[in-house]
Amino acid sequence: MFMRIDHVGIACHDLEEKIALFERIFELKVVAREVNTEQGVKEAMLHIADGEGGGSYIQLLEPLGPDTPVGKFLAKRGEGVHHVAFGVPDVVQALEKIDDRGVRLLDKQPRHGSLGSSIAFLHPKDVGGMLTELVQAAERHGGVTPNARNADT
């Protein structure tokens, strides 16, 4: 079912500070930035590598406010790993299979994700305490996903 680890989401208080840290220490580069008001975050995707199933990234997440999911996470747990996202070829099909296996779905239908992807989350209590995201990557155009063209916005 899984093709790769798509990304690891890391909650942080200051997006710019964490971008600079990951660029300096790991030599990663930002390939996309986005404000996702539906999820209440400002985010940056830092590219790690490409593989047969698609790219792998670090996703840095800064909450838009304290009452957002990431804002509440930071207040309770502090900065750190927020979720792990797995690349799937078809997010709708993956949701159906996982639902049939008795796992609670936080999203019954896919929604907009980073880099133009379709995403859905699984309930952490049903998968060992880990917030799990399923990601169906957007079609790639010229080696760059559509939203990745505006990395400096």
Rank of each mutant, 00 (worst) to 15 (best):
E79H: 00
L115Q: 15
S117D: 12
V103G: 03
R24D: 11
K97S: 13
D67T: 02
P69S: 09
T145V: 10
L95I: 06
K108E: 15
V81F: 01
G142H: 06
T132D: 10
L28A: 04
L106Q: 11
V103I: 15
G51A: 08
T37D: 09
D107V: 11
H47F: 09
L95M: 08
S114I: 13
I10E: 05
G40Y: 03
A11M: 13
D99S: 15
D67Q: 08
Q109S: 14
T37C: 00
R101Y: 04
V92W: 11
V70P: 03
H83W: 04
K18W: 13
T153F: 12
H13Q: 13
E79L: 00
E38G: 10
F73R: 05
H7N: 12
E27S: 12
I58Q: 02
E96C: 02
G78D: 01
P146C: 09
G55Y: 02
G40S: 04
V30T: 13
E27T: 08
T153W: 13
N150I: 06
A49R: 11
L64S: 07
G54R: 03
M130V: 15
G65T: 02
G40R: 08
P146F: 04
T132P: 07
K29T: 06
A85Y: 03
F86M: 10
I19M: 02
H82N: 09
E17M: 09
R77H: 12
L46F: 01
G80L: 00
V84F: 02
Q136I: 11
S118K: 15
L105K: 11
G9V: 05
A94W: 02
G80C: 02
E139M: 10
R77A: 05
S114D: 14
R111W: 08
C12I: 13
D50N: 12
T153L: 11
P89D: 11
